[in-house]
Design a protein around this nucleic acid. Structure first.
Lengths: 260, 260
DNA sequence: ACACCGTAATAAGTAGGAGTAATAAGGAGA
DNA sequence: TCTCCTTATTACTCCTACTTATTACGGTGT
């Protein structure tokens, strides 16, 4: 094969990764899936388009049919394509895509991110995260609170400009999700959170934040500590809105005037 | 191969399907993925377990290694397993599973459904669906309203005891999702809705509903028609709670007293 | 205009073997 | 005794070549 940017650590592709120019980094079919996935998500192949035949495509990529087929199975598993004999492998309509799959999100954000998708994700986030904070406030135990407190201290110590600080930020939010005692919410929130993080962080790494985020995080913690669901929900809502603003300031054409 | 129940229509496996005893119905690797997926979701293989080696397993199933590998790639794409040289293919911890993937949900509900998962899904649903109704109320256009009205009429004409009635019910909810103008919410809601539907419908097909659902649906429609987000949200919340009650009455050990 | 049927294109599946990476065991040096 | 390095094994990874099954499409007859 030639020069596919390959996904690393655990198959979860990251945008703009491209570790080794020589494609020895990760699994071959993973790299192919990444390439195809990005191509589809970026609109290079439109829904309804039929990919070149199996042999043709695999020869073009200079890989065996087996490796190519495995990659296609991955895409099919995520609802991006469908293969049928005689008809070929065609890109499915967007409704069938598993848009909330972490890999699909990674592929979506690998290229130029779609503003509409970002808006949709933030909207969903604004719905789910406050609810998660509410559940956390109602169900947290001592251990959850300890983790949150520790993470918050970490955020204070290092700032969000450092890697350690951002790790602490992640820990804080992870602790909240853990406290929801709800696997579905946990997973959904983690996926969206990671995806959204990429947009702000990848584009523009260390830059002055529009506002010190610590007090807002502390408000969430205090509410969860007090077991006050309403307050936790409201405080988290502020955090999400803040993140949205942060993202919006980075994006180029970002205006859509609705405040739900 | 022997007698794998095979997934039909579009690769989305349904619980208790098992069309042809002779495995001619669908694709081979899909059938294998279904079998393995159900085995993992049902706990037959626990996280951390290592599956038999490629050659061994493929011979046991009487399929070629290629077919087996493709099935494993599907599972890997959904975060259920991870394959590494020398280490074998091992089941990943539950946190890594894409629990909201339609196929994974189908596999989860193919066997004995996990009450905890159902609770989690309903909780998430109770968060997302009312919000969806709110968005729909704020963004619906004439066409959306027409579809909802038509679906509502269909529900009245046929009852929910008939297939046509249930189809109309689906149409109604689909129309609402369409009106949200949010792909992420649309997909999430559709996945969960379908999954939850299986539990109630598969276990106990036509039975007396505890309450006539039409007026409650009509309330949602009226609120969306009026563009009243708060009312739409509240009315949808009632519908979700109703569905939860319906499910709870079917399930065996179902009690957990929390009302958010 | 329609239903039937044959053909060809394409994916699906089979078989086996060489390559490679990860793990574990064993040995050398401190 | 401990650590580090080398080696060997094991199981996935990837390839090649071939056979089979499915199905879209177009032709044929009514």
């Amino acid at each position: 094969m030639k020069d596919l940017p390959d996904a690393h650590h655990d198959g979860a592709a990251e945008p703009g990764a491209q570790r080794q120019p020589r494609g020895t980094g990760r699994r071959l079919h993973g790299a192919i899936a990444y390439k195809l996935g990005v191509a589809i998500l970026s609109g290079e192949y439109a829904p309804g388009d039929v990919l070149s035949s199996e042999v043709e495509f695999s020869e073009a990529l200079d890989v065996s049919r087996g490796a190519y087929r495995e990659a296609v199975q991955v895409l099919a598993a995520k609802g991006l394509v469908e293969s049928r004999p005689k008809a070929g492998t065609k890109v499915l309509p967007r409704e069938r895509w598993r848009l909330l799959d972490p890999d699909v999100l990674a592929w979506a954000f690998a290229g130029e991110p779609d503003m509409q998708l970002i808006r949709d994700l933030f909207e969903l986030r604004a719905v789910v995260e406050p609810a998660a904070a509410r559940f956390a406030a109602e169900r947290r135990d001592r251990e959850d609170l300890r983790k949150m407190k520790e993470a918050l201290a970490g955020m204070r110590r290092h700032t969000l400009a450092t890697d350690a600080g951002r790790a602490a930020d992640r820990d804080f939010h992870d602790a909240i999700l853990q406290a929801t005692r709800n696997d579905a919410i946990k997973m959904l929130s983690a996926s969206i959170g990671a995806a959204v993080h990429w947009t702000t962080q990848y584009k523009q790494r260390a830059r002055a934040l529009p506002r010190n985020p610590i007090p807002d995080h502390a408000k969430v913690y205090d509410a969860i500590l007090a077991g006050d669901g309403d307050a936790a929900s409201a405080a988290m809502r502020v955090l999400v809105d803040l993140a949205l603003e942060d993202t919006r300031s980075v994006m180029p054409g970002a205006e859509s005037g609705e405040g739900a």
